[in-house]
Design a protein around this nucleic acid. Structure first.
Lengths: 347, 347
DNA sequence: CTGTTAGCGCCTTCAA
DNA sequence: TTGAAGGCGCTAACAG
C-alpha cells in the first residue's frame, strides 16, 4: 500500500531512470536528449522527448549540480529577508532577467551565537556547486578564498580583496548631520549600526566629522549602539530621550533604527518633528510610510543590486572587472525633521 | 600547477574526504561526528571536530539532500522578485526565524513563452529534495501531485485541492469601488489583472457587483487588461484616458497597474486626483511613495506570508491543517482619490 | 567503536 | 547510435 519506493513510476519524483524505462532506452541516452547532445537517432530523440513531456520530467537541480560544475544559477546570500535585502533583491532580479541565469536567494536565519560567520557557512554549503557565483549581502567577515566568483554588497571592511559594491556611507552621513545642523540643532545623537560592518563605521565617522567641522565637540554620551535593528534601537533611544540633557535630534544609522527611535519618541511623549528631529539612512520603501514620513539618506538600493549582478556576470564570463563600485547617496527630506525649537529642555 | 583536483586539500571546496584524510579516519566516521550520531569514541570525535574547524568544512547542501530526505530548508518559489513577492518574503522570514528551518527563495525569471508552468518546473527541479516543503507564490496552474508539502499564496483558482492562503479579493474590490462611488464617480474604469489568477477574476467580480449594486450598468469599454504590470497598464490607460467619454476614476487591479495609470495620467496631462481618481490594490510599500500617494486596498502581505509558513510547518510536522486561510483587506485612503468634479468632459 | 559496501540522480568517458 | 561503468559528496546500513 505504501510502497512509495522507486518501483513504480508516478510515485514521487520522476527521475531520468523512469523516463529511460518508459522510453525503452538507457539512461545516458535520455541524458543526451535532454542536454541537446548529438549522437542520438532522430527517431529515438523524438520518442524520448515525448516521454519526457508525458511524465513531466525535469532534471533535478541537485543531482545535476553534484556532477557538472555549471548550474546557471546565481546565489544571493542574505542573513534574513528584511527591507534592505529585499530591495537589493528587486534590483538584482530586474538586472538578471533575460540573462539566462536563475536566482536563488538563501537566508540562513541565524540568530545569536552562530550569527557571525553565517556567510562563510552558507557559501560553503551552496558552492559545491548549487550556484555558479554569489552575491553576499552584508558579510561580517572577509570570506577569503571561495571556489566561486563572489561579489559583496556593503561588506565587512570596505573594498579589500574581493569585488564589492556599496554606497558612499561617509558622505551620506555628513549630508544627514549637516541637514540637522542647518536646522539649528546642536545636540545631535547618533544610533550606531552593526560594528562589524564598514558601513556603520563610516556613517559614524561622517557623523563625527560633520560635527567637528561645525565646531561642535562630539559628546560621547550621545553615541549609542542600535545594531541596525528596530527593537534594539527603540530600547536604546528610550534611554537617550529621557536624559536630563536630551538630544533634540537623532541621526540613526539606518531606517530600521530610525523607526525604532520614532516608536520610542511616541512612548516617551515627544512629538516628531516639533520636539525631536529624526534622520535615517537607506531609504527603504517603508521609510515613507512612517508617521511622520522619515527624512533619510537615500541609497540607490536597487541599483546597488543591479551593479552587483553585472559585476558577477562579468566575472562569470571570465572577463576582468573593476573591483569596486561606489554609488552616491542623496538626502531625502520628508517630515521627521524640523527646526530646533529651544536650546535644550530642563536647563 | 593547475591540479585543482581533489588531490590537495585547500584547493577548491573542502569535502568530507579531506577532513577524513587529515583526521586519519574514514569518511563515515566524519559523517557520524557531523551529524551528532553516537558510536564514536570521544577522542576521535574531538579530533575530527578540530579538523572540521581548522579546515572550515561545511556539509554540502547538495550532496546531503541527494542522499537523505530531510534538509531543513523551506523553498519559496516566485516568478520574480518584485514588491509583492518580496513583502511576502519578509513575513515568511520573520515567521520562520527560530524554527530551525532555513529559507531558499527561487526565481526562475521566466519570460514569454515558457512563463506559464514555471512553478511546476521549479518545483520539480528543487523537490528532489533540496527542500522539505515549498511555498509557491501566484502559481498559474494546479500543481497537482507534488512529492512534498506545498502551500500556495494567491493561487490559480481559489482553494482547490492543496493548501492556500489569500486575501478576500472580492470584498476588497467592492471596498475600492464603493469608495469611488461615494466620491460621486460614475464612470469608473477597471484595469484587470492576470487572467490566470483567481485574485484578478475576483477583483473584477467585485468591481462588477459594486457597480451593479449601485444601479450603474457596467460599461465593457471601461474594462481593460493591465496584466498586473506597470508598463502594460500605462499603455492601456493612455487609450482609456484619451477616450471621448473618458472615465473620471480608475480602479487598477494592483498597485503596479495603478502606478502605470499615474504615469499615463501625467503624460496625458490629467491631474490626480483633481481630474482623475486612481485606486490600487495590494498596498506594497512603494504605494505611499508615489505622487500623489496612492489610495489602495491593503492586503496584509507579511501576514499572508507568515500564515503560509505556519501552515507549511504544520504539514511538515505531519499534523493536520486547515486547507485554506483567507485574510481581510482594508481600504487605505491616501491622496490619489478625490470627488468627481464634473459629470464628464466634452459632453 | 570503526570501516566497508552501497546507492541517491545525474553526467561523462569509453566500448560495443 | 547506443549502453555499461564509474564517480560527484554524502549518509545508512551492516560487517569487522
Amino acid at each position: 500500500m505504501d510502497s512509495a519506493l522507486g518501483t513504480r513510476p508516478g510515485a514521487g519524483r520522476v527521475t531520468i531512470g523512469d523516463v529511460a524505462r518508459v522510453a525503452g532506452v538507457s539512461i545516458p541516452t535520455v541524458s543526451k536528449v535532454i542536454n541537446q547532445r548529438d549522437g542520438v537517432a532522430p527517431a529515438t530523440m523524438l520518442r524520448v522527448q515525448q516521454v519526457v513531456e508525458d511524465l513531466g520530467y525535469e532534471t533535478s537541480l541537485v543531482a545535476r549540480s553534484l556532477r557538472s560544475s555549471r548550474t546557471g544559477v546565481v546565489g544571493i546570500l542574505v542573513p534574513e529577508f528584511e527591507p534592505f535585502s529585499t530591495e537589493l533583491l528587486r534590483g538584482i532580479s530586474r538586472a538578471a532577467t533575460g540573462t539566462g541565469y536563475e536566482l536563488l536567494a538563501y537566508a540562513g536565519l541565524m540568530t545569536g551565537a552562530d550569527r557571525p560567520g553565517w556567510e562563510r557557512r552558507s557559501l560553503s554549503r551552496l558552492s559545491g556547486t548549487l550556484i555558479d557565483g554569489a552575491i553576499v549581502v552584508t558579510p561580517t567577515t572577509a570570506l577569503s578564498s571561495s571556489s566561486i566568483p563572489v561579489v559583496a554588497i556593503d561588506p565587512h571592511t570596505g573594498p579589500e580583496g574581493h569585488a564589492t559594491v556599496d554606497a558612499d556611507n561617509e558622505a551620506g552621513a555628513v549630508q544627514a548631520v549637516e541637514h540637522l545642523l542647518a536646522l539649528g540643532h546642536t545636540r545631535i545623537a547618533h544610533l550606531q549600526g552593526r560594528a562589524d560592518l564598514a558601513s556603520a563605521q563610516l556613517r559614524a565617522a561622517g557623523y563625527r566629522s560633520a560635527l567637528t567641522a561645525a565646531g561642535i565637540p562630539v559628546d560621547e554620551c550621545l553615541l549609542r549602539d542600535g545594531g541596525y535593528q528596530e527593537d534594539q534601537s527603540a530600547a536604546v533611544a528610550r534611554e537617550l530621550l529621557t536624559l536630563d540633557d536630551r538630544p533634540t535630534a537623532v541621526f540613526a544609522a539606518n531606517d530600521s533604527s530610525a523607526i525604532g527611535v520614532l516608536r520610542a519618541a511616541a512612548e516617551v511623549g515627544l512629538r516628531v518633528p516639533e520636539d525631536l528631529s529624526v534622520v535615517g539612512f537607506d531609504d527603504v520603501p517603508q521609510a515613507s510610510t512612517t508617521t511622520p514620513p522619515l527624512t533619510t539618506v537615500s541609497q540607490p538600493l536597487a541599483e546597488l543590486g543591479s551593479h552587483a549582478v553585472q559585476m558577477l556576470l562579468t566575472m562569470l564570463r571570465g572577463e576582468p572587472t573593476t573591483d569596486h563600485v561606489r554609488l552616491p547617496t542623496t538626502l531625502r527630506v520628508r517630515a521627521s525633521t524640523g527646526p530646533a525649537q529651544r536650546p535644550a529642555p530642563g536647563r
